[in-house]
Design a protein around this nucleic acid. Structure first.
Lengths: 242, 242
DNA sequence: AATGTTGTAATGTATGTACATATTAATTAT
DNA sequence: ATAATTAATATGTACATACATTACAACATT
């Protein structure tokens, strides 16, 4: 493996170790239950101290990606594997599964100044314009989702791309950006005037609101996404095990 | 405060410190943004090392309960009610973590005939009575969740149990039933008359609706649970990676 | 063959130390 | 007064070290 850790890098050693472990987690052998090298060995190989390595492992354990057991060692947690692939269906795929055919309409692209939350998430200055994409989706006469996405400048989108193809596929193929982590917050809201108009529903009707933060493998922010789903037309499913 | 930490206890010092911090988090002053004593001071007061204390703090930071900032110190994070998909904490525990004190009121237990969906899920005949539990939770004057749970007869609940203690703990300890898998469906709904009354909100107000199917290790159904969350008081968070 | 016993290998707990870094506050210079 | 500089302070990073605990494996005992 070489010592994949750069002691001169400004990136903290524990963070580098963490990244490295994430890569290992993705390797098939570990995915299949192979135990990791023990902490003392691994620390030696990486030329960092055990404490530092544990800092990295701890984070992944807390995230539920790794499981530690005394004497037996550290392994990739079982449950995570299944929930992964499930969760990464893009929206159109999710819906196809449910037997609903989706049309995309009113896709708009523009350059805007980020508000505070977005600038903060992207870690950019608020005077830097970013790409905003709006989408309305559903059956032709019956929109049931309204999306807004903002993309980090790093991604290199020009606004000329074909936003009709699956988004993450496009990012991966044409911009070499691989989304690997997403954090989502789901809540219920009453539709305000704007949303009610978009979704053609009454003011204050319930909508399912999803805020999504998407990161690449280095946990760098890529996309900030808001989704407003007409109630009853969308069910969010989560599967978890322990 | 005295040194609230017992060096002779079998409970690890960092765990004791963690408990203590959780208590502090519940205190109003910290809730309101007061900064914690700095690590070095606090470690001295508790008579543990800074490293050990940091272990405890780290955990709470990972959980999103605390926020650390250089020079400014450590504070309670602005409370967002959330539940990690991995986390098997019951709702009351989730809330306690967040420093919100929860009262349980109107806990009712009854024996009822299952409707079709439930009978189907439990794989039992619809003429067999099952245990139904209803709970209303929230702050004293402000209910924000209404729960209904149905339990499979196999679990062996009599209805006489103490439903005030954490549910899954109780099932595990007293009925040797270990919940290992859950499937959840989350959607937005308009409050009907019944729910509006329970949650003390207007008819048709948005609520977050969660349907939860819980299974044991053999994937046998254990619990069927419905939750109605007042909008704005509950955000469901999901983290997924690939 | 079933049951203890003991060794050992992994993680778990805990401390002490040192220096880095970021942010606020105070000071100084313009 | 305002800006630039400096100091102080809290967290952040990193290491070395020591001993505890647990669970499995190999062995010995019944």
């Amino acid at each position: 493996m070489r010592h994949a850790i750069d002691h001169k890098s400004p990136i903290p050693l524990h963070a580098q170790a963490e990244q490295l472990l994430r890569k290992m987690i993705n390797e098939e052998e570990y995915q299949n239950g192979k135990v990791f090298p023990n902490e003392i060995e691994l620390a030696k190989v990486l030329a960092i101290s055990r404490s530092t390595l544990r800092q990295a492992i701890n984070k992944l354990v807390f995230e539920g990606l790794l499981v530690r057991k005394k004497r037996s060692g550290t392994k990739v947690a079982k449950s995570v594997v299944s929930s992964k692939s499930n969760n990464w269906l893009s929206f159109s795929q999710e819906m196809k599964l449910r037997g609903i055919t989706i049309k995309n309409f009113e896709t708009q692209v523009s350059w805007v100044l980020p508000d505070d939350e977005i600038a903060d998430f992207f870690e950019i200055k608020p005077d830097r314009k970013i790409l905003k994409m709006e989408k309305l989706r559903g059956k032709p006469d019956e929109p049931f989702v309204y999306f807004v996405s903002y993309f980090h400048p790093r991604v290199g989108l020009t606004g000329e791309e074909d936003f009709k193809m699956p988004l993450y596929e496009m990012l991966e193929n044409e911009h070499s950006v691989i989304a690997t982590l997403s954090k989502e917050e789901i809540s219920a809201k009453a539709a305000d005037n704007f949303i009610a108009g978009k979704l053609k529903i009454a003011l204050d009707s319930p909508v399912l609101f999803r805020k999504r933060f998407v990161y690449d493998h280095g946990e760098r922010p890529i996309e900030y996404n808001l989704g407003y789903y007409k109630a009853d037309s969308f069910v969010y499913t989560v599967e978890s095990s322990r």
